[in-house]
Every structure is written in structure tokens, then in C-alpha cells.
Amino acid sequence: MQRVNMIMAESPGLITICLLGYLLSAECTVFLDHENANKILNRPKRYNSGKLEEFVQGNLERECMEEKCSFEEAREVFENTERTTEFWKQYVDGDQCESNPCLNGGSCKDDINSYECWCPFGFEGKNCELDVTCNIKNGRCEQFCKNSADNKVVCSCTEGYRLAENQKSCEPAVPFPCGRVSVSQTSKLTRAETVFPDVDYVNSTEAETILDNITQSTQSFNDFTRVVGGEDAKPGQFPWQVVLNGKVDAFCGGSIVNEKWIVTAAHCVETGVKITVVAGEHNIEETEHTEQKRNVIRIIPHHNYNAAINKYNHDIALLELDEPLVLNSYVTPICIADKEYTNIFLKFGSGYVSGWGRVFHKGRSALVLQYLRVPLVDRATCLRSTKFTIYNNMFCAGFHEGGRDSCQGDSGGPHVTEVEGTSFLTGIISWGEECAMKGKYGIYTKVSRYVNWIKEKTKLT
């Protein structure tokens, strides 16, 4: 034993070699072989497995989906700052455009905790909710729209109204504003409101030439003092309507412009014939205590009207009353817009006519005020429907199939267009061939041609 100890002390290297040989010859039971080890760690190889990531292109799944990435790591994937920024906006807080917040056709661009709407022409605001041009839906104005110097929408209202708090709607500024039905039992019968379409306001006024200088022999019209197929109006439903009495009662109609003036057809009036105007009328054979009678003290036909040349060209006249009318729910003026808007309103496509005229061709006159909704007829169809001249200051309205029309005794009465609950004068009943005849239409004086003249002559002093 002493000898062994001496050998170990003198030859430590020998001992180490012996131990190493023993270990190498022993069977290893701690580690699995290569094949079995792979069965336990069965993990798919990654895209760049075996390579240094710093030297390969980034992978979106590896960089940002398996674990949260930084902007720089995302930049490695896209290799483009702009594309990385677009991805980053949604990656950080989701897609803010998912709810489609942009209105009126706006395009949404996502941002971090926010979004941006790219608005089409005519709109602005956070969600493109603000109209900035009158060309689109009248700028959301209830009545009139004008573009300011910086191309912003400025709404306005006709006389007797003021802008509401929203700067879009119009509200009454006087007790009985024009064009409004205020009798409670008839307010439910107000005709369907007309909503502004998209309009090209630059070209809204037709490029028409008034044929002022045409000389033409007097034409022989049949029954051209021209509501057939209409309905009984309720008291106060058309408070701007008046009836004219002269040699015979209810020979023509008219509309209240203001307390002192009536507008009617020029062919209705004769110099030297006494005319009485009755406002607030409903049943011409009954006294309903809503009527107001006034005498006409002055007749002003349009300066281009000449019955000797043509009885229905420039067929418009103004009547001055001896005493002002007292405005109330049964006696209310009709609204008159400017030339541009009167023309736009007419193009809405349908209007209402009213009167006490004959209820059928050569038949009896109506006792109760009649009204009828009539569609506008395109000019080409209008011209083809008659052998008589249709001037540019006239328009056609009615039904091709016949059966409904204005008729004798309705002449001078109103053709009105309702705009968001307020009625505007767009025409004056003038003439036609018979009444409600198939293929024939009622012919009306186009008020847009005469609004400046009306307003100039009827100013209240």
C-alpha cells in the first residue's frame, strides 16, 4: 500500500490518463441519441435557420407576430419608411378606419389613436360632414345658397324668414311668412316636400332668348283662358290664391305678392273693366268669414305684352289694390325667389296649380277651390304637342294621358313649387288646347323671366 501511494504521488498524470480511459469505455446513459432527441424537440425550422439574422431580410411573422416588435424591426421587413409607417399605425392600436367614419364618399386613412378623412370636392370637416359648395344638395341650405369668396357655403332665406341657429334652416321672422300653410287642420295635408338634388348652379339658368321682337298675326285659340281631375282644397291650404270678379264672377285667378299687390295673367284683364279681388276665398257660393274683398285701382301688364300681336306672350300683369290686405292664416303671400332659384325650383319637376275653373272641358265651374299636382314636361315634348308657338318664356306641365289639367277660369292662378315646406311661385296658368285632352298640356308663363320686374313694381313704400 505504501508503494502504491508513492507511485500516485510521483505520477499524477498517469492516474488522470487511467481515469479518462475508464470513462470513455463506459456506456453513456444520461444523453439520448440524435434521433430520439429530435422526437422530443420537434420544432419547425425557421426561415433563416442556421444563418445569422443580421444578414437576412426581415420576416413579418418572425419579427412582429411571434413577439412584439419595434418600429426598427418592422422597418427591416418593409425596407421602406412609408410602408412601415402605414403598417405601424394599425399594428400599434388597430384600424381606426374600420367603422368607416368618413361621410359623403370620403376616404379614410388610419393613424395612431386617430384617423384622417380625405374629402371629395365640396366637403370638409373631420368626417367630411361639412358642405362647402352650393353645387351639392344646395349646400344643405333649406332655401338659398351662395358661395363666399373663400368658396364656403353661405345660406340665406327669402323675405319674412331668418336663418336658424344651425345656419342652414329657415324659420319665420314674421307672423305670416310667405308660402307657408298655417291653418292647423290643413298642415297635415301639406304636399310632399321637395329635397334639393345635386345641381350645376353655374349652368342652372337656361341660355334662352326671349323672342321679344317676333311679330306674329293673332292666333285663334280655343278655350285658351284655361282644375280638371283635381281635388277639393281645404280652407287655408292655398292662402296665396285669390279669385278675380268682373263682368262675371271667378273669371280668373291670381296670387298675393304682398298686402297691396296681386300677380295674374295679362290676358285676364281689360282696361276700363272694374275688377274686384277676393282673398281668403274657399267656396265661392258661401260666406265663410275668411274672405277679404278689395278693388283694383291700377293694372300693370308687362311692358312687352301686346294682345294685338299675341294674347299669351309675356302673359303676366300686376294688380294694385285700393287697401292693403290683412295677412292671416287664410290670406298669405306666395314666396318669389330670384331668377336663378325660381328656375331651379321649376326644374324640380312638379308643381301645384289651383283655381275655381271648370271641372271638365266646357263644363261647370268649381264651387270649392280645386288643386292638382302636375309634372313638368320637357321642352321637346311640349313643342311636338301643339302647332302653336311655345315661346321661351312659357313652359308645359300636365299629363300625356289627359284627364287632369287646369281649365277655363283658372287662368292667372299660381303654379307653385314647394321647397322644404315653403311654396314659391314658378308659373302662372296661361293657356292650353281644350282641357285635359290626351297628348295636350297646360301652358304656363315662366315666372323666372319676370321676377325682377315683379319685385321692382310691387315694392311697398
Results as ranks from 00 to 15, higher is better:
57 Q>C: 04
432 G>P: 12
116 E>F: 14
163 L>S: 03
21 G>I: 14
197 P>F: 10
407 C>G: 04
71 F>Y: 06
459 K>Y: 13
245 N>M: 04
239 P>M: 00
148 S>F: 07
171 E>W: 07
150 D>K: 08
288 E>K: 06
360 F>I: 12
180 R>K: 13
220 S>P: 12
201 Y>V: 11
196 F>H: 10
429 I>F: 12
45 K>W: 07
350 S>Q: 15
335 C>K: 00
236 G>Q: 04
362 K>R: 13
268 C>L: 01
327 L>K: 04
365 S>E: 15
41 L>G: 12
35 E>F: 08
88 W>E: 15
327 L>I: 12
77 V>I: 06
246 G>F: 01
248 V>L: 09
221 F>A: 12
418 E>I: 14
130 L>R: 14
357 G>T: 12
368 V>Q: 11
370 Q>F: 02
393 N>C: 03
237 Q>C: 04
282 H>K: 06
295 N>A: 06
248 V>A: 04
280 G>H: 01
92 V>R: 14
267 H>E: 02
406 S>P: 10
259 E>G: 03
215 T>A: 08
45 K>C: 05
189 L>Y: 12
161 Y>I: 01
335 C>V: 00
350 S>D: 07
311 K>M: 08
261 W>C: 00
103 L>M: 11
202 V>E: 13
435 C>F: 03
69 C>F: 03
180 R>C: 03
399 F>T: 13
403 G>P: 13
255 S>H: 01
284 I>K: 07
93 D>I: 12
69 C>K: 04
186 T>S: 05
358 R>C: 05
387 K>D: 14
70 S>C: 05
14 L>P: 09
241 Q>C: 05
290 T>P: 05
265 A>F: 02
300 I>K: 03
55 F>H: 15
286 E>M: 10
16 T>C: 12
29 T>S: 11
401 E>D: 15
293 K>C: 05
367 L>S: 07
114 S>E: 13
177 P>M: 01
15 I>R: 05
425 L>G: 00
356 W>D: 02
341 Y>R: 14
250 A>Y: 07
235 P>F: 06
71 F>R: 14
261 W>H: 01
114 S>K: 06
278 V>N: 04
40 I>E: 04
402 G>C: 07
138 N>Y: 07
124 E>S: 15
225 T>V: 12
371 Y>G: 12
137 K>M: 11
431 W>C: 09
353 V>E: 01
274 K>W: 00
237 Q>I: 07
189 L>Q: 09
177 P>A: 08
117 C>F: 00
223 D>S: 13
435 C>W: 03
228 V>T: 12
428 I>C: 01
383 L>I: 10
181 V>Y: 07
195 V>Q: 11
282 H>W: 12
128 C>H: 02
268 C>I: 00
184 S>N: 15
380 A>H: 09
108 C>M: 02
378 D>V: 03
385 S>Y: 15
280 G>I: 02
212 D>I: 08
436 A>D: 14
242 V>N: 01
315 D>N: 09
350 S>L: 11
458 T>V: 06
411 S>C: 07
432 G>M: 05
138 N>I: 05
234 K>A: 14
82 E>P: 11
309 I>C: 05
445 T>A: 05
342 T>F: 00
329 S>P: 14
78 F>M: 15
276 T>L: 04
121 F>C: 04
353 V>M: 05
396 C>T: 00
119 C>F: 01
26 A>Q: 01
144 F>A: 00
21 G>T: 15
386 T>V: 07
240 W>D: 00
432 G>K: 11
252 C>Y: 01
253 G>N: 01
305 Y>V: 01
274 K>R: 09
210 I>E: 14
429 I>R: 14
449 R>L: 10
120 P>I: 07
233 A>N: 07
95 D>H: 14
435 C>E: 03
452 N>W: 05
122 G>A: 06
375 P>G: 14
410 D>H: 14
175 P>T: 09
4 V>S: 14
437 M>Q: 14
413 G>F: 04
99 S>Q: 15
356 W>Y: 14
428 I>N: 01
340 E>Q: 13
410 D>L: 08
23 L>T: 03
147 N>S: 12
88 W>H: 15
208 E>H: 12
306 N>D: 11
336 I>N: 01
243 V>H: 05
204 S>E: 10
50 G>F: 09
377 V>Y: 02
330 Y>W: 11
368 V>G: 11
179 G>S: 01
52 L>S: 15
54 E>K: 08
416 V>R: 02
265 A>Q: 03
377 V>R: 05
455 K>Q: 07
220 S>C: 05
87 F>T: 15
325 L>W: 04
149 A>Y: 13
452 N>L: 05
310 N>I: 02
296 V>Y: 01
65 M>V: 11
262 I>S: 01
114 S>Y: 09
319 L>R: 00
174 V>G: 06
194 T>K: 08
209 T>N: 10
72 E>M: 12
248 V>E: 04
250 A>D: 05
35 E>L: 05
366 A>C: 06
241 Q>K: 05
110 D>Y: 12
150 D>A: 10
221 F>D: 13
16 T>W: 12
226 R>P: 08
164 A>Y: 03
40 I>G: 15
268 C>K: 01
69 C>S: 04
441 Y>V: 12
322 D>P: 01
281 E>H: 10
359 V>T: 15
157 C>W: 01
226 R>G: 13
308 A>W: 05
129 E>T: 03
304 N>I: 03
384 R>N: 15
148 S>K: 10
16 T>Q: 06
25 S>I: 15
297 I>C: 02
332 T>S: 14
57 Q>K: 11
276 T>F: 04
209 T>H: 12
87 F>H: 15
90 Q>H: 13
80 N>L: 04
173 A>L: 13
246 G>I: 02
82 E>C: 03
180 R>A: 04
410 D>Y: 07
386 T>K: 09
275 I>M: 08
312 Y>K: 06
175 P>L: 09
305 Y>A: 02
311 K>V: 07
203 N>W: 06
416 V>Y: 10
86 E>W: 08
418 E>A: 14
431 W>G: 10
129 E>C: 02
142 E>A: 07
224 F>C: 06
261 W>F: 06
251 F>I: 10
343 N>E: 13
133 T>Q: 14
346 L>K: 03
223 D>C: 05
337 A>M: 01
308 A>Q: 14
461 T>Q: 08
54 E>I: 08
276 T>G: 05
276 T>K: 03
78 F>K: 15
127 N>P: 02
195 V>H: 10
414 P>V: 07
72 E>I: 15
182 S>M: 11
140 R>G: 09
55 F>Y: 10
296 V>D: 01
47 Y>D: 13
163 L>H: 00
265 A>S: 09
40 I>V: 12
10 E>G: 15
195 V>P: 11
374 V>K: 03
303 H>C: 03
359 V>R: 12
364 R>H: 08
99 S>D: 10
185 Q>F: 14
453 W>Y: 02
28 C>G: 13
299 I>C: 04
244 L>K: 01
238 F>N: 03
196 F>C: 06
262 I>C: 03
14 L>F: 09
92 V>P: 10
382 C>T: 02
122 G>P: 13
160 G>K: 01
375 P>T: 10
444 Y>K: 01
288 E>N: 08
280 G>F: 02
290 T>L: 05
295 N>T: 04
424 F>M: 00
324 P>H: 04
230 G>K: 09
235 P>G: 05
106 G>K: 02
310 N>P: 04
83 R>P: 13
413 G>L: 07
41 L>W: 13
169 S>C: 04
208 E>A: 12
358 R>I: 06
65 M>Y: 15
383 L>C: 10
136 I>N: 13
258 N>T: 05
124 E>N: 12
68 K>Q: 15
87 F>G: 15
172 P>C: 03
285 E>S: 13
189 L>M: 08
141 C>K: 01
195 V>A: 12
88 W>K: 09
346 L>V: 07
62 R>T: 13
317 A>Y: 01
445 T>G: 02
412 G>S: 08
170 C>R: 01
195 V>C: 06
437 M>G: 14
245 N>Y: 03
107 S>Y: 07
282 H>T: 12
267 H>W: 02
127 N>Y: 12
23 L>W: 07
12 P>L: 15
429 I>W: 12
79 E>G: 15
396 C>H: 02
10 E>N: 15
61 E>W: 06
347 K>Y: 09
362 K>W: 04
161 Y>D: 00
197 P>I: 08
365 S>A: 15
346 L>C: 02
44 P>T: 15
